[in-house]
Amino acid sequence: MDSISDPVPDRPTDDLVYRHAPGTRITYRARQRAVDLTAWLGLTLHLPSFLLGLALVGGTALVLEALIGVPAWIPVVLWSGAGVLVFHRPTEQRIARHLLRLQRPLPHELAVLAPVWSEVTARAGIDGRRYQLWIEDSDDLNALAAAGHIVAVTRRALQDLPTSQLAAVLAHELGHHTSGHSWSGLLGWWYTVPGRLVWRALALVKPRLVRIARGASITAWGLLLVLVGCLTVITAKATYGLPLLLPALPYLTAAVGRRAELRADAHAARLGFGRPLSLTLHELVAEESGTPGRPRRTGLSARLLSHHPDHRTRLHHLRKYL
Rank of each mutant, 00 (worst) to 15 (best):
V76P: 02
V76N: 03
V77P: 02
V77I: 15
W79Q: 08
G81S: 14
G81T: 14
G83F: 10
V84A: 14
V84F: 13
L85R: 05
L85V: 12
L85K: 06
V86F: 00
V86M: 03
H88P: 01
H88E: 09
H88I: 13
H88M: 11
H88Y: 15
H88W: 15
P90N: 07
P90V: 12
E92D: 08
E92P: 08
R94P: 01
R94H: 13
I95Y: 03
I95C: 05
A96K: 09
A96Q: 05
A96H: 09
A96L: 13
R97W: 08
R97N: 10
H98M: 07
H98A: 12
L100W: 11
L100Q: 12
L100K: 06
L102E: 09
L102H: 11
R104C: 00
P105M: 03
P105N: 04
P105C: 05
L106S: 04
P107V: 14
P107K: 10
H108I: 05
H108V: 04
H108C: 12
E109V: 04
E109G: 03
L110S: 12
A111R: 14
L113T: 04
L113D: 01
A114L: 12
P115R: 05
P115M: 10
V116F: 11
V116W: 09
V116I: 15
V116R: 08
S118C: 00
S118L: 03
S118K: 09
V120C: 10
V120P: 09
V120F: 11
V120Q: 12
T121H: 03
T121E: 06
A122D: 11
A122L: 04
R123H: 13
R123Y: 11
G125L: 08
I126R: 10
D127K: 03
D127Y: 05
G128A: 02
R129M: 00
Y131R: 05
Y131V: 08
Y131S: 06
Q132H: 13
L133P: 00
W134K: 06
E136S: 15
E136R: 14
E136L: 15
D137H: 12
S138R: 02
S138H: 10
D139H: 07
D140P: 00
D140N: 13
L141V: 15
N142W: 05
N142D: 09
A143K: 08
A143T: 08
A143L: 09
L144F: 14
L144T: 14
A146N: 01
A146F: 02
H149N: 13
H149W: 00
H149V: 02
I150S: 02
I150K: 01
I150R: 01
A152Q: 10
A152V: 13
V153N: 03
T154G: 07
R155H: 14
R156D: 07
R156Q: 14
R156S: 13
R156C: 05
Q159C: 03
Q159M: 09
T163Q: 15
T163Y: 08
S164Q: 10
S164R: 07
Q165L: 12
Q165R: 14
Q165T: 15
Q165W: 11
L166D: 06
L166P: 07
A167W: 02
A168F: 06
V169G: 01
L170R: 01
H172R: 12
E173P: 03
E173K: 02
L174K: 00
L174P: 02
L174E: 04
L174S: 02
L174N: 01
G175Y: 06
G175D: 07
H176W: 12
H176K: 07
H176Y: 11
H177D: 06
H177E: 05
T178K: 06
